[in-house]
Design a protein around this nucleic acid. Structure first.
Length: 527
RNA sequence: GGUGGCGUGCCCGAGUGGUCCAAGGGGAUGGUUUGCAAAACCAUAUUUCGCGGGUUCGAAUCCCGCCGCCACCUCCA
């Protein structure tokens, strides 16, 4: 089995991956809080860790994959208030949308997709275990975790609880913070404060789980006290995952997770930060005020823009401003918008996987177009191979040099993927092979069927790890009207009536079909 | 202010001591192929990897300084 190396956030090192039980991998990925449709940035961890799962499986591991759904949370309650419904309704709506979007992205269904609201008894049990060990304190119906009692606190994020205290001291007017013994302490259980807040009975009165505890309860409940991989976006390192470690290890007395994997963020290109005319005007006024040194004015304008989710970086010395696009989450297109603009889930997937998962990705529509074109090349070689097989000859060149290239490409691809899931490098290897396959198919005597089959198998393995799959275009599937035109065109070409042939080609183009002529005749596919 | 990370050719993006005058993709230009296209293939783009020093026989890759960018420290993936 190929030796897999992964970058473990716990050690900040590349480590050889060895599951607790050889051949079996238990992994948990933080899922969505279902209060809205998810955007292309949210999609990144879903796609990335699905790729991780598929790669592990291709390398011969049996993977148990858990991805939770946070269906009770402040943001959900807030959204329900806005929409005039209840939290359960909001959660249900966006949970369904989440599964639909995941499917379009080609994300394999998790073995378990637990919901926080279904784990309340286990959550209460875990809090009680922590309580029994003196790790908690209660305050106005809230239960807090006492960070100072956990000696390893900060082991994942490298943060020092004392620094957190210093940083938080400016925010003591926050009543929530004021109640806590230490600013880093966090809620395990939140007492019900308003009648419209969903609540469950508990030993501490009616309330709901804190955010971090649900993941501890669900992951250890489904995967055991110690499991192999826990993954999510890098923003979760602190405080979410740090707190999960603190809770889980204190409650079970056992190590929690062996390998922590975190993906980097997606940013939005500046040109994709659309401002309304009014906002642009405000920005201009702000620039003027900044240059003129009218501090009060520009600060007021900045706050005004902030309220509209336009976040600016202001450099007072240089008197310059820039956009903090990544913070302006409203600028990140929803996946549904991306699909509505005609991009397939697979294109989004490929776009996200072109970049190594620990490097930031910049989103723009033109970069998405670039990814689509690139992916089209991959799809095209699949079609060409398929056609070559159909017209296939077993008398081709059996000793074709392509055969040896295949083995080399496979090996290089695997090695790249095994090096902390280097999808960029692996895709490079794939395209190198694709060029060679294309060159072989251009030859007057193409390789024999056996070689072509091996080429298909090599590509299939690569696709399996990335989670790509191409539907082979079949002419039988084209509408009858299109097939009729193709028939006419074929006949015109037999007569060498190129004027008619070109006319039909143009007509089909208008209808959205691309016609190409090859040595073996014409091909047709939707544009 | 603290912590972690990044800066690669026109653009995107791998590479982290020699095999790199930098994989692969997008774009551009020229060629092969084609009735013409498209697709595919081939070739090309002031030795070049933020800037300045240093280590080394040798650096995009290591060290120091500077500049710029990003994330987290606020229940944003």
């Amino acid at each position: 089995m190929t030796t897999l190396k992964v970058r473990n956030t716990l050690t900040n090192r590349l480590e050889t991956f060895e599951p607790l039980t050889p051949g079996k991998v238990r992994m948990y990925v933080c899922g969505p809080t279902v209060y809205d449709y998810f955007h292309i940035g949210n999609a990144r961890p879903f796609v990335v860790f699905d790729m991780v799962r598929r790669t592990l499986e291709t390398l011969g591991h049996d993977v148990t994959y858990v991805q939770n759904i946070t269906d009770i949370d402040d943001k959900i309650i807030e959204r329900a208030r806005e929409q005039g419904t209840d939290a359960a309704g909001v959660a249900k709506k966006y949970t369904q949308a989440y599964f639909e979007d995941l499917e379009r992205l080609g994300v394999k269904a998790a073995n378990h997709a637990p919901k926080a609201t279904e784990y309340v008894p286990q959550i209460i049990e875990m809090i009680q275990a922590l309580e029994a060990r003196g790790m908690t304190y209660t305050c106005d119906g809230d239960v807090y975790y006492r960070v100072s009692k956990f000696p390893h606190y900060g082991c994942l994020s490298g943060k020092n609880p004392d620094d957190l205290r210093a940083g938080a001291s400016q925010r003591t007017q926050d009543e929530h913070t004021a109640k806590k013994e230490h600013p880093a302490d966090f809620a395990l259980w939140k007492g019900q404060k308003a009648p419209d807040e969903p609540a469950w009975e508990s030993p501490w009165g009616p309330g709901r789980p804190g955010w971090h505890i649900e993941c501890s309860a669900m992951s250890t409940g489904l995967l055991g006290n110690t499991f192999d991989i826990h993954a999510g976006g890098e923003d979760l390192v602190f405080p979410h995952h740090e707190n999960e470690i603190a809770q889980s290890q204190a409650a079970t007395g056992e190590p929690f997770v062996r390998y922590w994997l975190h993906n980097a963020f997606l940013n939005i290109a500046k040109e994709e930060t659309p401002l309304t005319e009014e906002q642009q005007e405000v920005v201009q006024r702000l620039e003027g005020a900044l240059k003129a040194g009218e501090t009060e004015t520009w600060q007021r304008l900045r706050d005004e823009l902030n309220e509209q989710n336009v976040h600016l970086e202001i450099d007072e010395q240089a008197k310059a401003i820039s956009f903090k696009a990544s913070k302006s989450l409203k600028n990140v297109p929803k996946l549904r918008e991306v699909f509505a603009r005609g991009y397939s889930g697979q294109v989004v997937r490929f776009f996200l996987l072109r970049t190594h998962y620990r490097s930031p990705v910049t989103f723009s529509w033109s970069l998405l177009d670039e990814a689509r074109k690139s992916l089209g090349r991959w799809e095209e070689v699949r079609n060409r191979l398929h056609r070559a097989m159909e017209q296939g000859r077993s008398d081709g060149a059996h000793e074709h040099p392509l055969a040896t290239e295949l083995a080399a490409a496979r090996e290089r691809y695997r090695a790249e993927m095994a090096e902390d899931f280097n999808t960029s490098g692996a895709i490079g290897a794939a395209f190198h092979l694709i060029s060679q396959i294309n060159a072989a198919l251009n030859e007057a005597t193409p390789p024999a069927k056996s070689v072509l089959e091996a080429a298909q198998a090599a590509l299939a393995e690569m696709e399996a790890m990335l989670g790509l799959s191409f539907e082979v275009q079949a002419e039988a599937k084209l509408p009858a009207e299109v097939q009729e035109l193709l028939q006419q065109r074929a006949e015109a070409r037999k007569r060498r009536d190129f004027a008619e042939s070109d006319r039909i080609r143009d007509e089909l183009k208008v209808k959205g079909y691309i016609v190409r002529d090859t040595r073996q005749g014409q091909t047709c596919e939707p544009a």
